[in-house]
Design a binder for these strands. Structure first.
Lengths: 241, 241
DNA sequence: TAGATTGTTAATCGATTAACAATC
DNA sequence: TAGATTGTTAATCGATTAACAATC
């Protein structure tokens, strides 16, 4: 290997990692607009972040560094960030549960950019068999363990109903998965050393709703009478034809 | 109003809120199994959490409290948590972008439990018009502002492609939304006081992948030759017919 | 030189965990 | 009484922000 530094991942906080895509997006569009240099101040203002945080984040993923007075060279930053995402990551996942959410994830094009790939979907529903989403095929559940093992997949994604999640999880573990991304709203029991990341859509929306209530108390929780009517009549669709 | 306490939301950390559903799920199934009492120790072990954290979390959402030696009364905890979720929250949202992800969210049944409801979807695609997912109808985008205003909706959900997100966001703000749940991987510019919660699926998976790399370095990034074959031939589907 | 900007060291803040006193 | 358990107060940890010295 010819990397200048240890290719093992430097400890970069999750929060930083989550912000990286926003930096990349901003820098790419700035570059497209013809800008060549930028500063932490400018980025921070654009993305609503703290200036120092921007510097620390950029320092964490880019070796280019900025220079006093002139700031950062956008082109370099972009390429460093792309390297960071692409080079440091190259992982494959299987997905179980080809419902709406499963299909959405299979179809999602954004994983590529991060060196991530869902290679196949699994489902127990006969009707789904052999269907393809974004060129990812749906296989029967009874092939899950065997295929995942043979493909050497390390990440399993669970998008089945809560009741089926633990069973699927067990299969994924048996198949050798080391990390599980769980969209079912249940706690999964896994052996020591297996990593589970829970994603609860309802809980996320709840968080937003609570923030709202904190800041704005109760407004607009009235008018319930008229809207049922509006929505159900479908009258809102008029004028469209 | 006849509530025993100020109905405004007590400051409960986001982390705590995210854990609440897991407590509820565990407690409900314990109750179903016939258990009447439990302790923070037991819960912590079951859900892989710290014991003290469990006590603090439960204290935050339940007034019942536990008693030394006997612990908590599960029935009371369950009812307190359900109240916490249901009573403290009652918010409605509109969703824009009826692609795979949009449909998945519209179809998701889990919001009810938290007093949350997506009331309608919007899309620019003619073909989607009037379709229903989980009884939520898709309306044309040009009705978004008017309908959202009239319905007094405070939360907007953006599941459109990145390029369309800012435009949709502007419409939602114009329509009076105070909070935006954004699934498009771009930073949204909003006026002061509007809350944006970003959800980046790719970034979430990236986090998982990075954890993996930290803990297990590089294993199983081989065998790339044979699997393309397996998957593409669809031979894995044999034996199914 | 003066001023903009970086990067680092120190302070603050919030959440988790540990220690412990209270109680049944 | 002894032991399990709660709830609180203090310590730790990690991330964000502020202060500041270095530099072009």
């Amino acid at each position: 290997m010819m990397s200048t530094r240890d290719s093992s991942i430097t400890p970069i906080s999750n929060q930083t990692v989550k912000r990286i895509p926003f930096y990349l997006g901003y820098l790419q569009s700035a570059l497209a607009a013809g800008t060549e240099n930028t500063s932490a101040t400018v980025i921070a203002r654009a993305l609503n972040l703290n200036e120092v945080q921007v510097r620390k984040d950029l320092a964490a993923v880019s070796q280019s560094g900025g220079r006093p007075r002139t700031g950062y060279v956008i082109k370099d930053l972009v390429s460093d960030i792309e390297d960071f995402l692409g080079l440091n990551n190259n992982d494959e996942a299987v997905l179980v549960g080809a419902g709406h959410l499963g299909k959405a994830l299979l179809s999602y094009k954004g994983f590529d950019e991060y060196g991530l790939k869902i290679v196949a979907g699994f489902d127990s529903d006969e009707a789904a068999m052999g269907m393809e989403y974004n060129e990812k095929m749906i296989f029967p559940l009874n092939k899950l363990v065997d295929l995942t093992k043979r493909l050497n997949i390390r990440i399993g994604i669970i998008t089945v109903p809560a009741g089926a999640a633990q069973g699927v999880c067990d299969m994924l573990v048996e198949a050798g998965c080391l990390a599980i991304w769980n969209f079912a709203p249940v706690h999964l029991n896994v052996p020591e050393g297996i990593m589970v990341q829970n994603e609860n859509m309802a809980a996320s929306l709840l968080l937003l709703s609570r923030h709202l209530q904190e800041h704005f108390s109760h407004e607009g929780i009235q008018g319930k009478t008229e809207w049922e009517e509006i929505l159900e009549s479908g009258s809102a669709l008029d004028g469209q034809r």
